[in-house]
Deep mutational scan, measured.
Amino acid sequence: NLRWTSEAKTKLKNIPFFARSQAKARIEQLARQAEQDIVTPELVEQARLEFG
């Protein structure tokens, strides 16, 4: 299971509600691909840039 830093959680809250669950799934996918067990603000930002 993935842990989220408080900064990453804050960044996730800045994503519009309607896109948040999809973004969260993508962020967690990116973390797993990078073999990380902690979601960082950088991963959230990477996903945000993908979504535009």
Rank of each mutant, 00 (worst) to 15 (best):
34 A>Q: 12
9 K>N: 07
10 T>P: 00
48 R>Q: 12
3 R>K: 12
13 K>Q: 13
1 N>Y: 10
14 N>F: 08
35 E>V: 06
38 I>H: 06
10 T>Q: 15
4 W>V: 00
5 T>C: 04
3 R>L: 12
40 T>A: 02
4 W>S: 01
3 R>Q: 12
4 W>A: 00
17 F>Y: 10
3 R>P: 08
7 E>C: 06
5 T>E: 05
20 R>F: 04
44 V>E: 00
25 A>F: 08
13 K>R: 12
26 R>P: 00
39 V>S: 00
32 R>F: 06
4 W>C: 01
23 A>V: 15
47 A>Y: 15
5 T>K: 02
32 R>S: 05
22 Q>W: 13
50 E>D: 07
13 K>E: 13
34 A>L: 15
15 I>H: 03
23 A>T: 07
6 S>M: 12
10 T>I: 14
41 P>V: 15
14 N>Y: 10
51 F>A: 06
43 L>C: 05
23 A>F: 10
28 E>F: 02
22 Q>C: 14
43 L>I: 09
27 I>T: 06
35 E>S: 12
47 A>W: 15
31 A>R: 01
36 Q>T: 14
33 Q>I: 12
21 S>K: 12
16 P>F: 06
30 L>W: 08
31 A>W: 00
33 Q>R: 10
13 K>Y: 10
10 T>L: 13
7 E>S: 08
7 E>T: 06
7 E>P: 03
6 S>W: 09
42 E>D: 12
48 R>I: 15
33 Q>F: 08
27 I>W: 02
49 L>S: 08
43 L>E: 01
2 L>E: 01
1 N>D: 13
11 K>R: 12
43 L>F: 09
44 V>I: 06
15 I>G: 02
30 L>V: 04
35 E>H: 14
9 K>W: 14
25 A>W: 07
9 K>A: 10
45 E>V: 06
51 F>Y: 11
41 P>W: 09
2 L>A: 03
46 Q>P: 01
49 L>C: 08
31 A>Q: 01
30 L>R: 04
35 E>Y: 11
30 L>F: 08
40 T>D: 02
42 E>S: 06
42 E>G: 06
44 V>G: 00
36 Q>L: 14
34 A>G: 07
17 F>D: 14
5 T>L: 06
19 A>S: 11
44 V>N: 00
1 N>W: 08
45 E>R: 06
22 Q>V: 12
9 K>R: 10
14 N>K: 14
49 L>F: 09
9 K>Y: 11
52 G>M: 15
21 S>N: 12
35 E>I: 05
15 I>E: 02
7 E>V: 05
4 W>H: 00
11 K>M: 15
46 Q>Y: 09
9 K>T: 11
43 L>R: 02
52 G>P: 12
24 K>I: 15
18 F>R: 07
5 T>D: 05
28 E>V: 05
40 T>K: 03
27 I>H: 00
15 I>T: 02
19 A>F: 14
45 E>H: 05
45 E>K: 05
20 R>S: 03
49 L>G: 07
24 K>A: 08
22 Q>F: 09
37 D>S: 13
8 A>Y: 00
16 P>G: 04
44 V>D: 00
46 Q>L: 13
42 E>L: 06
30 L>T: 02
48 R>P: 02
44 V>F: 07
49 L>E: 09
17 F>T: 15
13 K>C: 14
10 T>E: 15
16 P>A: 04
52 G>F: 15
45 E>P: 01
25 A>D: 07
3 R>W: 10
18 F>C: 15
17 F>L: 15
20 R>V: 04
11 K>F: 10
6 S>Y: 10
2 L>V: 08
18 F>H: 13
12 L>N: 01
6 S>C: 10
43 L>Q: 03
